[in-house]
Amino acid sequence: MATTNAPNAPKNAFRSEKNLNHVKNRFFTVFVWGISAIIVLFILALLFLILEKGLPSLSWGFIMGLPSEMEEGGGIGPALFNSFYMLVISLLISIPLGMAAGIYLAEFAPNNKLIGFVRVCVEGLASVPSIIFGLFGIALFVEMLGIGLTIIGGAVSLAFLNLPVMTRVTEEAIRAVPKELKQASFALGATHLQTIRRALIPTAISGIVTGICLVAGRAFGESAVIILTAGVSTSGEMWDFNLFSPGATLAVHLWYVQSEAIVPDAVSISDKAAAVLVFVILMFNIVFRIPLWIKDRKNR
């Protein structure tokens, strides 16, 4: 009997260890899914809390109306326009420069200590608090150039804020492209520039668009940089394209109404402004993602 049971002992030990690993794997999977579900539910509850207070009472008169200093019923028109205006200007600066810098670091930069130091600096700037860029904007536009608190100062400062993030996202997206794709492009006789334009960027476009969504949402919801470089007031006109006008955005207007304004309906204005702010940022992500979803479905 001892000789017949001896060969089964290792099998039983292996089977019990396999069952234990299976239980651990199932437990860890359930744990990860549970934490993820809690985080998603928390985010959804936060979004519902913000939107539920503001969206039902929104009106075009509020969205397109002029803000009021003393009386009830003021709108957010100029502040909302300034938000989009400065967002567009900042993206026109940060996206081309950030993508160019990221492509250079991923494809052309030599692997030496200087480039390593540059990468460390870019990563450090990406994590610097936004108020530091606001102070830089004051020193550059208000004190050195003497143009005061303006839309152009706020937009360029936002571009400086988002440039390191766009650079790092682009570099990582380009580096994530399989090397075989790049080698195949070279084997077909494509130049390095053609490989970047027709192979690397189209393949890495999903990561690049994610970076654009991040910088766009950050720029639209930023307040510290705008307060220090563009001010807390608007020109009072709905469609003011003058780059040297004061440029309070929706996020700044929300902060001002909640903390400094003396209008009787300040709480109602802040609830509706917060709902508009969150809704627009959500729309950014959806609009940027729709072309990628369509492209993925066509490639399947």
Rank of each mutant, 00 (worst) to 15 (best):
E222Y: 06
G77M: 07
F42E: 07
T195K: 02
I226D: 02
F284Q: 03
V169M: 14
L91M: 13
T29Y: 01
M238G: 04
I39L: 13
T210C: 02
Y104L: 08
A101Q: 05
N19T: 05
L66I: 14
G148R: 02
S57G: 01
F117Y: 13
N111A: 06
F28R: 08
L158E: 09
T195S: 14
A6C: 00
N19P: 00
I39C: 08
N25T: 04
F27G: 03
L87K: 08
V177Y: 13
L250R: 10
E171D: 12
R15H: 00
F241V: 11
L163Q: 10
V30F: 12
F241M: 13
Y104D: 10
W60N: 08
P56D: 06
P291G: 07
H253I: 01
P129M: 10
V165Q: 07
R297P: 00
V278T: 09
E72N: 01
K53C: 04
V278Q: 01
N12I: 13
V142M: 09
V169E: 12
M64L: 14
P291Y: 02
E180L: 13
A100N: 11
I208L: 11
I38G: 02
S127K: 08
V23F: 06
A45L: 07
R218I: 02
L254E: 00
R175S: 15
L105C: 06
I132S: 11
N8D: 07
G211W: 00
P164T: 11
G231T: 11
M70E: 09
L214H: 05
I132E: 10
A219K: 06
G61M: 03
A184S: 15
R175M: 15
I147Y: 05
A184T: 15
